[in-house]
Nucleic acid binder design. Structure first.
Length: 109
DNA sequence: CTCTTGACTGAGG
DNA sequence: GCCTCAGCCAAGA
C-alpha cells in the first residue's frame, strides 16, 4: 500500500466521509485538521474529484455556511436539497442554523 | 520553471 | 452589511 492513497485529496475525501449525518463542516476546518489551515482552497479543489465518489461534498461548505460549491453539482439546487434532507435548514444557498450543525474535525476528532 | 485557475479566508474600506 | 484586495497552496498547461 503506497502513500498514494493518503494524498492531500484522499485525506480530504476521508474527512468528508467522516462528517456525521445532519452535520456540515468548512473547507478551512478540514484543511486545518490536515495540517494545512491555509489550504482551504485546495480542499475545495480536491473535491473536484469527489464527483462520482461516496464523498458527501454537500456537507462541506465555506466558513460562512454558504453553498459556494453548489455550481459543481449536477442540478441547480441539488446540494441544498441534500442538506435539507438531513434536517439542515438552508435558505438562499446558505445554512441557517450553522452553529448547530457545524462539525469541526479538529474538535470532534 | 513560470503562469493561471480555484468548491477559501480574513482584513480593510 | 456589502465590496475589494491580498495571501494562501496545489495541480494543470
Amino acid at each position: 500500500m503506497k502513500e498514494e492513497t493518503l494524498n492531500f485529496f484522499e485525506k480530504v475525501y476521508e474527512i468528508a466521509r467522516l462528517v456525521p449525518y445532519g452535520r456540515v463542516t468548512s473547507y478551512g476546518a478540514i484543511g486545518n485538521y490536515l495540517g494545512a489551515p491555509r489550504s482551504a482552497r485546495m480542499v475545495g479543489y480536491a473535491m473536484n474529484g469527489s464527483s462520482g465518489k461516496e464523498v458527501p461534498a454537500h456537507r462541506v461548505v465555506n466558513r460562512k455556511g454558504l453553498l459556494t460549491g453548489k455550481h459543481h453539482f449536477d442540478g441547480t439546487n441539488l446540494m441544498q436539497q441534500l442538506l435539507e434532507s438531513e434536517g439542515i435548514k438552508v435558505v438562499n444557498n446558505q445554512i441557517q442554523n450553522l452553529e448547530e450543525v457545524y462539525w469541526d474535525p479538529s474538535k470532534e476528532l
